[in-house]
C-alpha cells in the first residue's frame, strides 16, 4: 500500500469517530433543547466523514450519495425538531429539558435541581448606542481630527 489510501482512510475514520463521540456526549448531558439537537447534528457530521472516506477507498460514489442524502434528512429533522421545540417553549416558557418529566413512573420522585453554588450577576442588557437617523453626531472639539469610534 504505497499510495497512502489506507492511512487516509484510517485517519478519516478516527476523526469521524471522535466527532461522533463528542456529539454523543453533548446529546446525553446538555439540558438546553437546542444544544441537544446541535450535538445530534455533530454526530451526523462524523458519520458523513466516515461515509465519504469509505466511498473514496472503495472507489464508490455511494458514500458521497449517502452523505448528500443525509444532509437532506438532517434538514428535515432540524425543521420538525425545531418546530416541536418552539411549541414546547411556548408551553413552559423555557428551553429546559428537565421541565418535561411527566413520562416517569408514578412512585418515582421528580428530579429536583440542587442550587447552584454561584449566581451570575444580573447585567443590564447592553444596547448598542446608535446615532439617531438623519442627524449628525455631536463631535467633541478635541476629536475633530480623529475619532476613536464611530
Amino acid at each position: 500500500m504505497a499510495d497512502g489510501e489506507l492511512e487516509l482512510l484510517n485517519g478519516y475514520l478516527v476523526v469521524g469517530a471522535i466527532l461522533f463521540g463528542l456529539g454523543m456526549v453533548g446529546f446525553l448531558s446538555r439540558r438546553n433543547m437546542i444544544t441537544v439537537f446541535l450535538a445530534a447534528e455533530i454526530m451526523l457530521q462524523g458519520i458523513s466523514l466516515s461515509l465519504t472516506a469509505w466511498g473514496r477507498y472503495h472507489n464508490d460514489f455511494g458514500g458521497q450519495m449517502l452523505a448528500l442524502l443525509m444532509i437532506a434528512v438532517a434538514a428535515c429533522e432540524a425543521a420538525v425538531a425545531l418546530a416541536l421545540v418552539l411549541m414546547l417553549y411556548q408551553r413552559k416558557g423555557s428551553l429546559d429539558l428537565f421541565l418535561w418529566q411527566d413520562l416517569r413512573e408514578e412512585s418515582v420522585p421528580r428530579h429536583i435541581d440542587r442550587e447552584l453554588p454561584e449566581a451570575l450577576p444580573e447585567e443590564p442588557p447592553a444596547w448598542p448606542r446608535l446615532t439617531p437617523a438623519g442627524l449628525s453626531p455631536e463631535i467633541p472639539p478635541e476629536q475633530t481630527g480623529y475619532r476613536p469610534h464611530v
Binding site: 446525553l28 448531558s29 446538555r30 439540558r31 438546553n32 437546542i34 444544544t35 421545540v85 418552539l86 417553549y89 423555557s94 428551553l95 429546559d96 429539558l97 428537565f98 435541581d113 447552584l116 451570575l120 444580573e122
Partner: peptide, 15 residues
C-alpha cells in the same frame, strides 16, 4: 427567540 444567553440554570449544569 428563546434563549436566555447562557444565564439560565439549565445552561450551566449538565446531567
Amino acid at each position: 427567540l428563546a434563549s436566555a444567553s447562557g444565564r439560565a440554570r439549565y445552561d450551566r449544569v449538565s446531567l
